[in-house]
Design a protein around this nucleic acid. Sequence first.
RNA 1: GCGGAGUUAGCUCAGCGGUAGAGCGUCUCCUUUACACGGAGAGGGUCGGGGGUUCGAUCCCCUCACUCCGCACCA
Length: 880
Amino acid sequence: MKEELATRYEPSAFEQRIYASWEAGGYFTPDLDPERPKFSIVIPPPNVTGRLHIGHALVNTLQDIIARWKRMSGFNTLWVPGTDHAGIATQMVVERKLAEQGISRFDLGRDKFVEKIWEWKEQHSTEIKDQLTRLGASADWTRERFTLDEGLSRAVRHVFVKLYEDGLIYRGIAMVNWCPRCRTAISDIEVEFRERNASLWFVDYDVTLDEAQAGGRKLTIATTRPETMLGDTAVAVHPDDERYKDLIGQYAILPIVNRRIPIIADPILVDPAFGTGVVKVTPSHDKNDYETGKRHDLPQLQVIGEDGRMTDAAGAEFAGLDRFEARKKVVEMLRESGQLAKVESHTNNVGVHGKCDTDIEPMVSRQWFVKIEPLATPAIEAVRSGAVQIIPQTWEATYFNWMENIHDWTISRQLWWGHRIPAFHCPNGHMAVSVEDLTACPECGAPVTQETDVLDTWFSSGLWPFSTMGWPDDTPDVRIFYPTDTLITGFDILFFWVARMIMFGLRFTGKAPFSQVYLNGLVRDEQGQKMSKTKGNVIDPLDVVNDVGADALRFTLAISTTGRDIPLGKSRIAGYSAFVNKIWNASRFAMMHIDAELRDAGPIERENLRTVERWILSRLNSATAEVNRQLSIFRFDEAAGALYKFFWHEFCDWYIEMAKPVLLGRHGSDQDRALAKRVLLEVLDRSLRLLHPFMPFVTEEIWQKLGGVEPSIMIAPYPVPEEVLEDPDAERLVNAVKAIITTVRNVRAERGFTPKDRFKLYIRGNDDRDSNFFRDYAYLLIELARLTEVSVEGEAPEGAHHDVVEGFHIAVEFPEKVVTQEQLDRVKREIEKAVKELESLDAKLANEQFTRNAPANIVAGAQARQTELRARLEKLQQNQ
RNA sequence: GCGGAGUUAGCUCAGCGGUAGAGCGUCUCCUUUACACGGAGAGGGUCGGGGGUUCGAUCCCCUCACUCCGCACCA
């Protein structure tokens, strides 16, 4: 039963009501029929740390478009939603919150602090669900997951224990990236490099040639980190460097602390051409020096502690000083002692912790690692073989580049929020790992305590595609929906997340966790700038939804998604919200003339259809094919663009206008009118279904009012192209009508006439059939081009405007000849343009190499164009 | 340093071997009973510079310039 549409499009009036009705209808939850073709996708779980930003709006809109498209296309579709505990990020946020009340996590203790974070999590995961709901995400909330859920935690333990048993997880002492602020180790990819203007300090070291000969020569050594000097245990030169060859094996005196340290030769560490060719060696605080120290069996002296302050080993004067304070003090003391040779300015890249921007301190410590190469090799192969396809493909090179140079993964974190490592230590030095908690040591029976470190947050999210399905149990979800089909996510987590999922998926399920990965670009502002709070150019997706509705935002995001970065600004969104408004109003117009009951008469009788109706159905069919094709290759922009163009510029601008004379009873028979209404309903109905994945709310609202066959448009079948609707002849004729109308309008404007001025049009058909067509559709030309009369037989009088349009000769007779200089210039310019084109075309066709070598259709096209241009030119010249 | 991408209309971007496209913006006209979040028209580009391949290049190859993004980082 049809209902009226509100006169104004107001999304806030229905969006939330509609979402509730979908959820109540259970449309987001797939059935468990293993026979049906399935489509499954898992959400990149947002961090529970806060509100969703525009990037989330994008990635979830794209997922929803694909999910809704697949669901309507007959796939048993599952979209799993959920959130990530996000280790450090969340812990940091809550710590900051507590700090406002003057409380540190140490005041609370581990258990109380973790409790606080859980409270935070409960608040925010609800907020995230609300936001996704407002966007229209068709995710199955009955399957919502969190990485710290009991089931997912069990998956984590299984994987950990199995990797340990397989020898792929080891615990050991190594130099890791340490964040002194967060007081935890982090992995290589969590380190970001910032270019910074710094100083290069040149320090003079005294050389003792041997015990007896103190003083004399000096070595000058450059450093960017003078404070680490306190921990130096050697000085290195290149073994072949003639300048220093004689000093190898001798000793240098470390300034300030006056420690005697060996001068060693190391071809790996030292580049004799760089700087002074002498390098200080600090095995405890530099990665290369650490390796050098191991090669030469140098002692390690840790002078910077876990908190970034100097240790007692740095000496009484420095102990307890912050590392940057210590740097100043060391420089000051060197200056005083006259051992600071010079200072140069220097730009270098400083590693910082990506989450908190604190300078990373390389630190030797005992951590847990994943031996990555045995996992990476199959993951490389999966992409190389095409088992996993990365889109856009250009990212594959980046993936290979990284995977082939991958380092072991530091998985332990000295945090409180996360999956505690399932390893148990006893006082006798035994250690056991176990899926179940242990109380007694399996070896000696002594009571055990669990490892205090937690796992890197990406360890658990790496299991997401199967841990959310219930793995390691053999659940129906695992059987039916795993592996998933498509993963849609940002390119920034290709290494953090996507690569880890492929590695874990292959290792533990024997299958790649998804077959396609679509990496979306970064949302930027209209100037192409990154959105950031400090720049103040951030667009909050919820503000946009409140303002213009979710559909406008979604459509803007989709049509802007080209595979690269996405420029998004208010004017862009406003432009596409006008499109939603257009859909609303066109539907309103259509619904004044149609009833759902029109369907009762059965399918459309094509044999009685008029040309314009056959034309719009043919155009609709092309758009249908295009949308399906583009969605299948993730060209969201092209798919949305095809719909935009069809609905607005073909359906609204032309078809509705061409149908009006018949619909409003100014022309045609009752049968014509009935068929036009039936076609109007058909086109609107199919358009709404085609549009639904992009703008779910407004299409549902209109569909409901229109009286759709299914209870919800989201489970109505997605249109597919039908060959019977293709109609090249109708397209040819209607294109001619459109072009003639445009030409008349154009000429009218050029000659300075207003729409009130009416002319007579002469047109010549190329054969009887065409002539009959123009006679039948003369009323259309008269209405849309605002003519007095159309003559198919008559001869145009002197002074008429002649032209050739789509192969048809036309002439427009003006009431009186109005000539201004401007108009003459215009005609002149038009002629010049045509002459120029014709000249180059003539030259081309006179060239034998072209006619011989170019494909036949190209040559034929050029010839046809040449003929048309010649005719047109002749007519245009008459106009002068 | 290694790798990848980009440079097309005023702005943001599509296109990619055969007569240069879209959205927004600009200018002109129009309140025609779905929509002024509208309709009709117009203007605007030697497709970063230079070579080459080709009958033909914005599109392929080389080269230069600039921009961006990864990765690696040397004191």
